[in-house]
Design a protein around this nucleic acid. Structure first.
Length: 647
RNA sequence: GCGCCUGUAGCUCAGUAGGAUAGAGCAACGGACUUCUAAUCCGUAGGCCGUAGGUUCGAAUCCUACCAGGCGUGCCA
């Protein structure tokens, strides 16, 4: 039992003695006091005092007297509605070190959800473009969530749903035929996903050009009409483009370009669907693919193959791992029978044009299309099939989707449909872990326009910087280890950076300001581990000597111990709230406490020499260091971060 | 229009299920390496917690309205 629970239990017994007749008084919340001078732990008593009908100070004074004789506390002080506790410093240190070293790498884990199985779907890329920082955030959240859920006992199945079919990949295929005949990753030296992504961008550019030709020719009337209708909006757009150009010192765009650009934003999709020759080509490829045209399928396979090779490389860098991969080309038909089933049950209905719909009771959900009038399936249809498939293939208690917040509505609808269809697990076995966007200073990233921060580039740049920094000082790392170490540090900085923001929030990322290696960062946590390793190496035989844990009573040691004791709570909470950022916070607090300890408290007088000539004290401090290292490594592992032995 | 999310230091973010005098890091300024690695430590400065009301002994946190930004919103995924 952790220390806060112990305190809570002792207080509960005292309360039962003091107020035996009050039912459901509850426990006071045990926290760290805001100021260390107040004590080691504090109980917040305002709500309980109110229930008993006493003034807060009256209540806590009586409670303090009742707890006076408790041996567990050194001191119990009432302070208004707070009750502050002081505990013998060496006792805290002893508890912490013994608890951590007894459990080792299992410290912080629990069996709370043992015998439960959860599937976590994450990453889920489209095969028409390489991964960017937004995808990286997704991958890291997914992996970290897997680790957190495992830590509280779940059996976890990480999965990925690859969107390998549809109009987007057909666009790249059209571009391949038109602009890149004969090119392969081998001939261009490009990574496969980058090659296909480049073709996708080229296709989009070509459509824009096609649109421009139309808008300044046969579509001129439409353009003029639209422009006069959106006069005010356009004036603002032109003005803001000018302002932006002035700020950045670039040439302002021509008014004509802004007009056509806006017109494209508004009508581009419509144009693509009805007037674009390129659009017709792409749709034709999609039709031929669905009909199984061998030539099209062959090209599709080849290009997807290039993309997978590229993804595999990036996944390897990130450490992404999947137990099961679903491909939409295999699952996209699964939903159709579900739609038929819903029609039979009368949950869905058919409109005269043949399209299939569902109306929801909740007006916020409105109604939703489930099958197009031409009989083809839509996005949500295949998701219905895949959701059911997951529960068929695995004995799941929970199915998690790590997907961006822009799809909150989509998942509300998906889950509600599955509930209406009567699947028992749909009641509380589905969870959408929605996370926020990663914004660049200039706004949202757009793959189509090529304004993205590429994952591979970012990793490469960080690795180069970590390597340079390693080489710049005393080289602690063995030469042959430097590549691995630089990679670990680079990934430590990237992962920690992206995971330290609360998942549900949007976050900003400025590529011009590189991710820091100093301050509240992953590398600073890794560094603390490297320093501990260094001490342990130099300690030699002292590591094995008997330790007198009772001699640990310095404030720096107690602070460290308190945080070690609090770590399991952080894990529990992070798993419960599905929020890895809570682990980041716990690690930073721990790293801070260790740095202060390390700065002010010596372990060794020299190599193998105990401080103050006291081996039992040195060994105790060594044990505290070992416990700290254990927890730091565990915490980083929960984030999917490795710690290099030396830095 | 409607719905959901977000407004905390110059920047990036915390703020522990309503609790004590709102905290870090970066950037700025000033200190600390003959010392277990300076990816560290110590200090200074920086805040009408978007605005206005309300609930409460107590509000950054809960409620209402407004302002600003983002996302979504019937045949895209």
């Amino acid at each position: 039992m952790d220390i806060k629970s112990q305190i809570s239990r002792i207080v509960r017994h005292a309360l039962l003695r003091l107020h035996p007749s009050v039912d459901g008084l509850g426990d006071p919340r045990i926290t760290f006091p805001r100021k260390k001078a107040h004590g080691d732990y504090a109980a917040v008593c305002f709500p309980l005092a109110a229930k008993v009908g006493q003034r807060p100070n009256e209540f806590t004074e009586a409670l303090a007297r009742e707890l006076e004789s408790e041996e567990f506390f050194l001191e119990v002080t009432p302070a208004g509605g707070f009750l502050n506790f002081r505990i013998k410093p060496s006792a805290i240190c002893r508890m912490a070190v013994e608890a951590v070293l007894a459990e080792g790498s299992q410290y912080g884990s629990s069996k709370r959800h043992a015998s439960e199985c959860v599937m976590v779907e994450y990453s889920s890329p489209n095969t028409n473009k390489p991964l960017h920082v937004g995808h990286v955030r997704n991958n890291l959240l997914g992996m970290s969530l897997c680790h957190l859920l495992e830590a509280v006992g779940y059996r976890v199945a990480p999965t990925c749903l690859v969107n390998d079919r549809g109009i987007h990949i057909c666009k790249s295929m059209v571009a391949y035929g038109r602009f890149a005949k004969g090119q392969t990753p081998a001939t261009t030296g490009e990574k496969g996903d980058h090659l296909v992504g480049r073709l996708y961008v080229e296709f989009e550019m070509a459509v824009r050009k096609e649109f421009r030709t139309w808008a300044t020719g046969p579509g001129q009337e439409d353009l003029d009409a639209w422009v006069s209708e959106h006069r005010a909006e356009l004036d603002i757009a032109v003005a803001s483009a000018r302002r932006k150009a002035e700020e950045t010192g670039r040439k302002p765009p021509a008014v004509e370009d802004v007009k056509i650009g806006r017109f494209y934003d508004a009508k581009g999709q419509e144009f693509f669907a009805s007037k674009s020759g390129l659009g017709e080509e792409a749709r034709d490829l999609l039709r031929r693919w669905e009909a199984g045209d061998p030539e099209v399928v062959e090209l599709w396979k080849t290009m997807n193959g290039w993309v997978y090779e590229g993804f595999d490389e990036t996944y390897k860098l990130l450490g992404s791992r999947f137990e099961k991969v679903y491909y939409e080309s295999e699952t996209y038909l699964l939903g159709n029978s579900v739609v038929d089933e819903g029609l039979e049950k009368g949950i869905f209905y058919r409109k005269p044009d043949g399209s299939v719909w569902i109306d929801f009771d909740d007006p916020k959900l409105g109604s939703k299309l489930l099958r197009r009038s031409d009989g083809t399936s839509v996005y949500i249809t295949q998701d219905l099939g895949t959701a059911i498939e997951k529960f068929r293939g695995f004995d799941l208690d929970l199915s998690v989707y790590v997907v961006g917040a822009e799809q909150i509505y989509h998942f509300q609808v998906l889950f509600e449909i599955l509930r209406r269809l009567g699947y028992p697990w749909a009641k509380d076995g589905l969870y959408h872990m929605a996370y926020g966007m990663v914004y660049l200073p200039e706004g949202k990233m757009k793959s189509r326009e090529g304004t993205v921060v590429d994952a591979d580039d970012l990793i490469a740049e960080l690795t180069a910087r970590a390597r340079e920094k390693s080489l710049s000082g005393d080289l602690r790392v063995a030469r042959e280890e430097i590549d691995k170490t630089a990679h670990q540090i680079a990934m430590g900085s990237l992962k920690f950076f992206l995971l330290s923001v609360t998942p549900s929030r949007d976050m900003n990322f400025n590529p011009a300001e590189p991710i820091s290696l100093q301050g509240d960062t992953g590398p600073s946590v890794q560094y603390a581990i490297a320093r501990i390793n260094s001490i342990l190496e130099k300690a030699g035989a002292l590591v094995e000597k008997p330790a007198d844990l009772g001699s640990l009573d310095r404030p720096e040691e107690v602070e460290l111990a308190k945080l070690l004791l609090d770590f399991p709570r952080s894990v529990e909470k992070a798993a419960h709230h599905r929020n890895p950022a809570l682990i980041c916070q716990a690690l930073l607090a721990l790293k801070d406490a260790f740095s202060k300890f390390h700065h002010n408290v010596r372990v060794l007088a020299g190599k193998g020499e105990p401080v103050d000539g006291r081996p039992e004290l040195a060994s105790a401090r060594i044990a505290l260091c070992q416990a700290t290292r254990e927890v730091l490594i565990k915490g980083l592992a929960l984030l999917g971060i490795e710690a290099p032995a030396r830095m």
